[in-house]
């Protein structure tokens, strides 16, 4: 039956969650983190997920990335049930986790060492093609000349730029971003929005972005999912049709502010809905 489902899934969906339940804990401590979630994401979508803390946003990312198995239901990525095949998903967290014994460039090239077809020629290409690729990305995020530095020589914002490069270096079909700009100041954050948008528009990977910043979601996403608190559920699924490339001016337009206000109201409702249960 599963095989039938797999082959029947149209290729216009890169990721799909089918009646997914995720339960954590055992016995009396068990609780439902994600409740009968259905979600279909098309190639090239930029999906932002917002919602109260603990509602299961990171859990959805982990499901799609194959880091977590659903308790019930099915997760499909690129037409196959997750776990069947690795497709080299790019991932970036709030904590940049650059390896201190490598240079920034070596850190950025790490995925090329692991993901095929790059890994097969890594030894040969690391000084030529891959080197240029890393340099190109560094230039795009404004880190030209920092390739030979060590992670401890860079500021938090610079590390997060490098982190973006590492997540994108192997041109992944899927990019998972879990609050990547959460620890940055407002100005750096807005600058990185534009950079990320540019990178996305170039290669059009499918992006899942988890964020607490509603302006960030509205600025970057083509689709915003609002989730309710425990048990997590997608309560609102919104297309964002603002023209691209979006700029800081976009954020002052009434459509933009209306959208962020709507989102804020929805999340406040989602939070209030959980109070009596606690």
């Amino acid at each position: 039956m599963e095989a039938g489902l797999t082959s029947a899934m149209p290729t216009s969906r890169i990721a799909q969650l089918e009646n997914v339940n995720v339960r954590f804990g055992k016995g009396s401590n068990a609780f439902l983190a994600l409740d009968r979630t259905n979600l279909t994401v098309h190639p090239g979508d930029f999906v932002a997920m917002v919602g109260p803390s603990g509602c299961g946003k990171s859990t959805i990312l982990k499901l799609v990335a194959g880091l977590l198995r659903p308790t019930e239901g099915h997760v499909f990525v690129a037409g196959r049930e997750v776990g069947a095949e690795r497709i080299g998903i790019g991932m970036a967290f709030q904590n940049p986790t650059m390896l201190p014994w490598l240079t920034i460039r070596e850190n950025i090239m790490l995925p090329l060492k692991i993901v095929q077809p790059y890994a097969a020629t890594f030894r040969r290409d690391k000084r030529t093609v891959f080197y240029d690729r890393a340099e190109g990305l560094l230039a795009k995020v404004g880190l030209t000349g920092f390739g030979d530095r060590r992670p401890w020589e860079l500021s938090g914002g610079m590390l997060q730029r490098a982190n973006l490069c590492r997540a994108l270096v192997h041109s992944p079909k899927l990019l998972m971003l879990d609050e990547p700009f959460g620890a940055l100041d407002q100005f750096t954050r807005e600058e990185l929005w534009s950079i990320l948008q540019e990178l996305w528009m170039e290669t059009r990977p499918t992006v899942f972005l988890v964020t607490h910043d509603l302006r960030e979601a509205a600025f970057l996403a083509s689709r915003i999912l609002v989730m309710s608190a425990r048990p997590g559920r997608v309560t609102e699924d919104r297309q964002v049709d603002l023209a691209r490339p979006r700029t800081l001016e976009t954020t002052f337009q009434p459509e933009f502010t209306d959208l962020t206000n709507d989102l804020r109201r929805l999340i406040v409702e989602a939070r209030q809905a959980k109070e009596p249960a606690q």
């Binding site: 982990k62 990335a65 690795r86 790019g90 967290f93 986790t97 692991i114 998972m176």
Partner: peptide, 25 residues
Amino acid sequence: EPEMEDVLKALGANRSQVFWNVSLP
């Protein structure tokens, strides 16, 4: 670091790749 492990696993790294690239150094 759990995040580093997640990044590598999402990339499709196997145990020996995680060992040589992260755990050992």
